[in-house]
Design a protein around this nucleic acid. Structure first.
Lengths: 182, 182
DNA sequence: GTTGGATATGTCAATACGGACCTATCCAGG
DNA sequence: CCTGGATAGGTCCGTATTGACATATCCAAC
């Protein structure tokens, strides 16, 4: 159900082909919000077109077909955004991994936490470059989708790093308590 | 693929029935990491038992069957945790919603952002209570799963709130720039 | 001229998942 | 006694999703 709104949202920014959309999902969108491959995107675009929520132009070069959101599609998207509906589907394999870390030996857990800290620092550096630049505005005068996503990713990675540092401290405390008893 | 590791991870903490596990998924685990209903859990437990990764005790009262992780199951879980495998599956309808907010009219977008700020503040208050208490240690001397999850959730909500506040400011800036031109 | 990579779109089978439905037991309170 | 809610387990079907396979074009570099 959510994929269709992701597609409508992307098309609300600018017209795009299935291929273009698939590439968007490889960026921050796919990293933090929703993943989809082209194999899922093409059929869904066809369905959206059949329902009149998007319109596909004739095939251009290399069979490229550019889709545009219709008024009905925009209305559908906005209606979905306005209903507050807390707690939709959540699936995040990376976070699950973090949570299960306590199943490892303390040494291994610490090693993984240190790797997480290093990795998040790296991503933070990348995102800081993206976010600290200009504030990009879409042709329609709207805030750029990718810009908002990068800002979210930045804060998310900061939170992950802080959590990992905190967890490291807690592991140390637990370890000291255990060896202290021996 | 990830559900089985979530189950193994929970059973690594303590033996539990399918019903117990389903309730765990309703808490912080399901909110930030991975969702699953009992309809997915029971068949997966049966599969894990068939593969020898967990062991189901005989039916107790009310048909209750308590599962315990086996040595093979623990080894499987640890092997999965140790391979760094960045960027697994991510699905988060709430975050998707945030990203698509720019498709709304500026007024509506601001309204939704304000609701997000209010909601995250509420969750933050709840989590602060949970995390600021004692540091719970599992029977095995390991850090408690739920404790780590709550700590993560706390930082995640802080990040979401900060993002929403930042986004509100950016919406305002974009709006001022647009009306300033008129 | 031909080779490799990016562009571009699809299909298909197998698996994962969600919502709806079903059954049954235990126990506290009226 | 009996009713409602929590405990406990499950199935079934339609849809969502993934991985693998398949095809064709354009263009730059060699």
């Amino acid at each position: 159900m959510a994929l269709r709104y992701a597609l409508l949202g992307l098309l609300a920014e600018r017209p795009a082909s299935g291929y273009d959309l698939a590439k968007e999902f490889e960026g921050d969108l796919g990293r933090y919000a929703w993943q989809a491959g082209h194999n899922r995107i093409y059929p869904e675009l066809a369905r959206l077109a059949a329902e009149g929520l998007v319109e596909g132009a004739e095939e251009g070069t290399r069979g490229r077909r550019v889709y545009t959101i219709t008024a009905a599609g925009l209305a559908e998207l906005r209606a979905w955004l306005l209903q507050p509906q807390l707690g939709g589907a959540v699936r995040n394999e990376g976070v699950l991994r973090l949570f299960l870390l306590s199943a490892l030996d303390p040494g291994d857990a610490r090693k993984m936490l240190n790797e997480i800290v290093a990795h998040t620092e790296q991503e933070l550096a990348r995102l800081k470059d993206t976010v600290s630049g200009e504030t990009p505005i879409s042709p329609g005068g709207r805030l750029d989708f990718g810009w908002l996503a990068a800002g979210y990713g930045l804060r998310q990675y900061e939170a992950s790093r802080d959590w990992a540092v905190w967890a490291l401290g807690e592991f140390d405390k637990a370890e000291r308590r255990r060896t202290g008893r021996h």
